[in-house]
Design a binder for these strands. Structure first.
Lengths: 267, 267
DNA sequence: GGGTAAAATGTTCGATTATACAGAAGATAT
DNA sequence: ATATCTTCTGTATAATCGAACATTTTACCC
């Protein structure tokens, strides 16, 4: 006889009851502490951390030191802010990155502030540039020796860039010598990550057709991790950063086979 | 010994959450003081400064002596300006054409002066717009109810538009209700023609996926013919022109099944 | 039912992180 | 200018984390 009892549905839950509860709790209260949950559920703190790890991977919460917080789902419209400040570091990084661009290169550039700054250092060269940034293409529009390919897509107002899955089909036909891109976080374990899924998609595509990867990340990016993983840190060939990054970090990079480069003040 | 009660501490806020709160607070009030926040969150001033440092690096606020302020943002994308001949006629045509755009439409617009002018008459509507014109997309960038799809391609500097054969692959997936486009020549025998091959290609593609065709042509276009044929004149559903066109021409159009429409002065 | 592989959980410990504190250097106001 | 407030720098410390390994629980198969 079949006996559909309560027990059966328990089995079917794809994550355990505790994780389910944690998800509800974080949605309700906004933040949770590892220590608290450990006591509350009568399990070790490690277990709670492993729960967090899984839930984070599923995009159900964000981990922070000491606990976890609810994911704020507001990134659609209200943050056109990501620009401006630590211009100084970005300027250094951009100038350094530009020095790796050679005549005849086919390069790709993402839609970040740093690459936008980069444009002024590589004007005058003879290049093919693939990008999804309207700003970058406008900068090169007047340059007769630079051929610009703008990847099509939905216009993301906040970053003035183009995103969307149909870039995929187009990008695959191209070969790129050097891809210059930024990210939201660089973490030795979690790799290179980005907060916006659509930007992440485009970058991943560009990564897949590029021979050399130049990751541009100022000091504030180190140790940060965000939801969407672009690639492993070791996949990058060069990581260009600024002089606020500890020398040990650079050493560690070099040990991993990533050429860590520190930009210098040029002005 | 200290004698503080639970409510004094209110320290469920840990690292990330505090930074998040600070971001909200600075957006709301415009400015914050280090000393105030230090008391409010029950952490040392150094901690608040480090928070500021990180948030500043992310471009979420600006630091000042003693505190931090909201960052005021200006658009850094230059809006391309255009000058053209027959502005008056084009204005009339554009306004008329815009009156055919309805809420909910999926429209396509080419990279002509007339469609660029058109944009100002259809702002505020709720639309999906497919275009290969950077100018058109920039005009709509701030419009929250307009979803812009920019067709990718090589950047043609002269017209600030995108051309190239890979538009084909992408365009085919879409359906367009109304396509608004211009041309170089309209001739009853030779049809609608264009001088630039690459622009012609994109327009042909858009024509093939569009239900209704709105051809925008001022009086100077009639009788002109150019190298690349876009379509037969009878394929257009509407032809919007100006009052310098002889009334006989309009009649002839109507006889061919094309609704000839004359724009009027609106100012 | 017993055996076994896989998954979940616990334990330990070195590494990392957030934070406080103190003193020097810098900025501001009177 | 000088007194005061703010910031920066380095150091110390406690909490927290992550990795490796040990143990338990669960699932599955014969």
């Amino acid at each position: 006889m079949f006996d559909y009892t309560e027990d059966m549905k328990e089995k079917l839950s794809f994550f355990n009851e505790r994780q389910q509860k944690i998800t509800e709790m974080v949605d309700k209260s906004g933040s949770l502490r590892v220590a608290d949950l450990s006591k509350q559920f009568n399990v070790s703190e490690e277990t709670i951390r492993r729960d967090f790890e899984k839930l984070e991977a599923q995009g159900l919460l964000n981990r922070i030191h000491g606990g976890a917080v609810r994911i704020e789902q507001k990134s659609e419209i209200p943050i056109p802010k990501r620009r401006a400040k630590n211009i100084e570091e970005k300027e250094m990084i951009a100038a350094k990155a530009a020095s790796y661009v050679e005549d005849g290169d086919i390069i790709a550039m993402d839609a970040s502030t740093t690459t936008l700054i980069m444009t002024k250092y590589i004007k005058g060269k003879s290049l093919t540039v693939i990008t999804n940034s309207i700003g970058v293409s406008l900068e090169f529009a007047q340059e007769s020796d630079i051929r610009v390919i703008l990847i099509g897509g939905y216009l993301a107002e906040s970053s003035m860039s183009l995103v969307g899955n149909f870039a995929e089909r187009v990008i695959q036909d191209y070969h790129v010598d050097k891809f210059f891109f930024s990210c939201l976080g660089v973490d030795f374990k979690r790799g290179v990550s980005e907060i916006h899924e659509d930007q992440a998609l485009v970058k991943k595509q560009l990564i897949s057709i590029s021979e050399e990867l130049f990751l541009l990340a100022d000091y504030s990016k180190f140790g940060e991790k965000s939801l969407f993983r672009l690639c492993d840190i070791t996949e990058a060939d060069y990581l260009i950063t600024d002089n606020k990054v500890p020398i040990n970090t650079i050493r560690e990079l070099n040990n991993l086979g990533v050429t860590g480069i520190v930009g210098e003040k040029s002005d």
